[in-house]
Amino acid sequence: MIDYHLNHLKELEAESIYVLREVAAQFENPCLLFSGGKDSIVVLHLALKAFYPASVPFTLLHVDTGHNFQEALDYRDNLVKKHGLRLLVASVQEAIDKGLVREEKGYSASRNALQTIPLLEAIEKNKFDCAMGGARRDEEKARAKERFFSHRDEFGQWDPKNQRPELWNIFNGRKHVGEHFRVFPISNWTEMDVWQYIYQEQIEMPSLYFSHKRKVFERDGVWYAASEFIQNKPTEVIEERVVRFRTVGDITCTGAVFSEASTLEDIIQEVAASRTTERGTRADDKRSEAAMEDRKKAGYF
């Protein structure tokens, strides 16, 4: 008697591939939000598997704050070339220049929350009826309440108290004209699952995730990369340290961790021993207890 069972990574993979195929079947013009971060890299890898040997039937959409790590942009462009993908960039800088959003001022200024407007604009302009993202429910408490198929009204807003029930693996992507869906294929994965999967599949990653020397400074207990996009306080000292990043987002609000982890095995070890969540290094979530819920309601991803 053969034991028919899948280990947890295979089961999560099967579930995510199922969700990606439902998106291709239920929507006319879906896009995949791609930041060059590890979660969107894994979603793209799963999409390559889901439609093999055909190409990925989605457009990649990068919401670009203009404050990027160069390594993340290089990685993105290489990947697009390698798999013959279609990439669209929605620019926060353009939205600022057009006067659609106003840049935050001061030391902790960040363009993170400003991403919502260009994202919604790109969705409307390109008539995307579904935007997939690499968000996971374990990341943050408001995300723990998120559906796989999450309905957005014509203003792109999320109504957490009035979500559609989601049962078994039957997904309801029906909508009215002008509305769209956000779909999260790796909802059930944890940070550890993502790294184990990257290790199992030997997926190539941006160098930012591995230990390297970098100029950093400390602010409110978090170490940030020094960059031309951040205004430093006179008391802040820039020094060179050996660091890596646990998440890769806008350079102004992504904290580094001191780390010697230079291989995927090292990173898995480090994640296992870590006593803080990866979002513990994100300034954008520290603004208030409900910071993520408020941004998500307005149409953030």
């Binding site: 943050e140 408490k141 723990a144 309440k145 957490p160 108290k161 409900a290």
Partner: peptide
């Protein structure tokens, strides 16, 4: 830890299914 939405924390109740890992 489990009551993620603002309304839940205010009212001390759980409104929606929350997934934990």
């Amino acid at each position: 830890l489990t009551d993620g939405l603002r309304a839940e924390r205010e009212q001390g109740i759980t409104i929606d299914v929350a997934y934990r890992y």
